[in-house]
Design a protein around this nucleic acid. Structure first.
Lengths: 219, 219
DNA sequence: CGATAGATTGAGAGTTTTCAACCGATGTGG
DNA sequence: CCACATCGGTTGAAAACTCTCAATCTATCG
């Protein structure tokens, strides 16, 4: 991932709620670990997050979960399937308790009429998400686990500073096992780049940490 | 990748040329291995392929090339950077001699005015490309090389039946080395699933081949 | 026909996974 | 408020897959 391309709070992915649209929206609340929709379901319009964190997850052939994208406060999600007019290709799971609006739309034409601004926003977000996905593919293909883990930690922290990302989630996001994440984080701690407070990971020096990411192996 | 989701000739990604737009377009010809644009360049509107094959490539930290996407006849490309208003995150290289139209646009608003239909097409293509990219990530994360190679071979063949995909290209598309592709293809040939005519790979039975893809290793 | 790009094969190396055991933190119900 | 269950984290050893490197072979093209 090209971390330089991001503002610290990922504001570029966010949009304030559209008051007009919220009139046709339904407010929904979810508990941690609830699904909003599941892989294979028919698309059902857009979702807008008021509070909480939502992850887009899938399962590999070997049964491991992967974390494709993460949506935070003021993010829309569900847009990909809606815009492609496809069923969902992955499952959204609440990483925390979540409050969101569900905005039902039949098709793109309806959305274009009701909010051309939102179409433009989603177009841009989608295009950025495609870059991110391809950068993640590049990383998984050519970067050592150490680099991927460190970069993912920084990326995820920027997306939500307050949330305590688990080793499992970090591993699922960058394509490696929980144990590998633990080993790398332990080394980072020994190198004085992060510290751990219980399960919480504290980044002490982001620049140094990023430099360390270029070390090829965790042995 | 979910190969079931594709029509055999990937028609869903294609669009006939827009006669109006071609009036403001420039026709360009390229030789095999030429670059159309390179990573880091500022976006410069849309490209539409009249004939030939174009690959979107990048280089990993370890210096290996990867093949992110492939564009064929009647495909638009360059749309991601244009729609995100970002510089190019990867390089387009001509896999064959190519004839294309370059359609210059300043920004999305100009495109929306001149061809709302094309915007809708690109929106849909982009959304499908994001699914594909995430499916590729899933595959790389959880599928053995054998599966990825076989699925990539079938996917690429469907995108362009006539083109003789090299082991290198197949490997770059699915994230493994040329030698690994060779080894897997040799096994597939011994299993009677494909045959080789010179450098050409002939798929004898696609269904059987796909079933074989689930075998986990190439040893 | 020679030159070059692409393909094949083998052996050895290396990163990451897997499996297993254990530890520590967190949260809940009695 | 303790006891206990559960979830998440740590560590080690062994295994596995794929890569790397090197040598050789074959196809293709000018």
């Amino acid at each position: 991932m090209d971390l330089k391309q991001y503002d610290n709070n990922n504001n570029i992915f966010k949009l304030d709620a559209d008051e007009q649209l919220l009139k046709i929206a339904t407010k929904l609340t979810y508990k941690k670990n609830d699904f909003v929709y599941q892989k294979g379901d028919a698309h059902k319009g857009l979702f807008f997050i008021c509070s909480g964190l939502v992850g887009l997850t899938d399962i590999t052939d070997t049964g491991n979960e992967i974390l494709l994208r993460v949506f935070g406060k003021n993010f829309y999600f569900g847009h990909r399937s809606f815009l492609a007019n496809e069923s969902y290709h992955a499952t959204t799971v609440c990483l925390t308790d979540v409050i969101l609006y569900h905005i039902p739309f039949e098709d793109i034409d309806e959305l274009i009429v009701k909010s051309p601004q939102l179409v433009k926003h989603l177009l841009k977000v989608l295009a950025m998400e495609l870059r991110l996905a391809e950068e993640k593919f590049n990383d998984l293909s050519g970067k050592a686990a150490t680099s991927r883990i460190i970069e993912s930690l920084i990326f995820l922290k920027h997306r939500n500073e307050n949330y305590n990302w688990t080793r499992k989630e970090i591993g699922e996001f960058c394509g490696c096992q929980t144990e590998t994440v633990t080993r790398v984080l332990t080394l980072c701690e020994k190198a004085g780049l992060i510290s751990k407070d219980g399960r919480k990971i504290i980044i002490l020096d982001e620049n140094n940490l990023l430099q360390y990411a270029d070390k090829s192996t965790f042995k």
